Amino acid sequence: MLQILLISAPVYLIIAAGFSAVRFGLFQAADTRVLGRFVVQIGLPALLFHALTRRPLAEVFDARFLLVYGPASLAVGALGLWWQRLRGRSLQHAALTGLGMSSSNSGFLAYPIVVQVLGPTAAVGLALAMLVENLLMVPLALALAERGDAGTRSFTGFLRVLSGLPRSPIIQAMAAGLLVSALEIPLPEVLTRTIGLLATASSPLALFVIGGSLVGLKPAAMRADLALIAGGKLLLHPLAVLGGMALLPGMDPGLRVAAVLYASAPMLSIYPVLAMRFDLDRLCAAALLTATTLSFITITAWLWLLRAGLHWLPVGG
């Protein structure tokens, strides 16, 4: 258990440092947004490009990972949407509930934990998880939410979301990395080292930004919704991924662990931002705070299960 805490505790201590820095005035909230822009625009793209170009395409593009992680995410998202519609919630509310339950904060929070467990394999798992999140889950959820607007067709909303994807630095970095890997283009050593340094900076800065962004968030009287979203994200999503592996065995052992750990992370840090258009940002911010706080316990429990229960991790690893 001590070894497991040594993996998860430093991550949450950096989050606590970011929270304290903003809470006590050392940084302003606007300062952390600048750091967040660096992570999203430069750090994470560098990390993904660096990971994808250091391995052959056959090792990077793991179809089994996608065939487990994608359908599992869709199933959990659909469950959240169905339950909220059953409760009489709007399609917008239901779609964003499903998104919160099924899309992880892979780059900002999960990666710093997974890399301690798996090393370089963590970045490959990150790229695969982000393919599912950015190309499937987020566009689909936003398209469904758009359909809740009077007179808006879901397909039109879906196309509008898709049209913005090529402008994303993360999508551009993944496409460039896959191209370099597929064509086996040699990169100059100085460029590889530079990109590697930028990639290294992304993890601690991302955690610091998460902590700063939590200052001032106050969960209101939304207990049923918060329990559904946070519980679905932290428990049902990784459980669905774990169940998918039973139906499709044979995945690379490292990526198998990565899939569960990425699914066990809280929802996307931009979750409240995505909800602003639909006036659901308060609910989503409260869900983000709740899930991030509880995830210290749940991720530690998943690490223990993978090591002591399923023996997927070596005792000393």
Rank of each mutant, 00 (worst) to 15 (best):
G151R: 14
Q28T: 15
G125D: 02
L242H: 14
G250P: 03
H50G: 02
S269M: 11
L81K: 12
P139I: 06
V39K: 00
A94T: 05
A285M: 10
Q92D: 02
S90L: 03
L248I: 12
L274E: 07
R37V: 09
S203N: 11
F158V: 07
L99N: 04
A265Y: 06
L6K: 14
T156W: 12
L66F: 08
R85V: 08
P266G: 10
A94V: 04
V241I: 12
I15N: 09
R89H: 14
S8P: 05
E146L: 03
G164C: 13
G43C: 01
A123C: 08
F38V: 06
L81D: 00
S163Q: 15
M251A: 07
A230R: 01
Q172Y: 05
A29C: 12
S8Y: 04
M251T: 05
D225I: 04
V117N: 04
V76P: 08
P188Q: 13
G25N: 07
G232I: 07
T194R: 15
M101L: 12
L242P: 10
R147K: 14
L191P: 13
L159T: 14
H50C: 04
M101D: 01
Q28L: 14
P204M: 02
L140I: 11
L144H: 01
L247Q: 12
L13P: 08
F49Y: 02
L178V: 07
F27W: 15
R282H: 15
A46T: 04
L2Y: 15
A17F: 07
L313G: 00
L13H: 09
F296L: 13
E59Y: 10
F38R: 10
S102Q: 08
Q3D: 11
H50A: 11
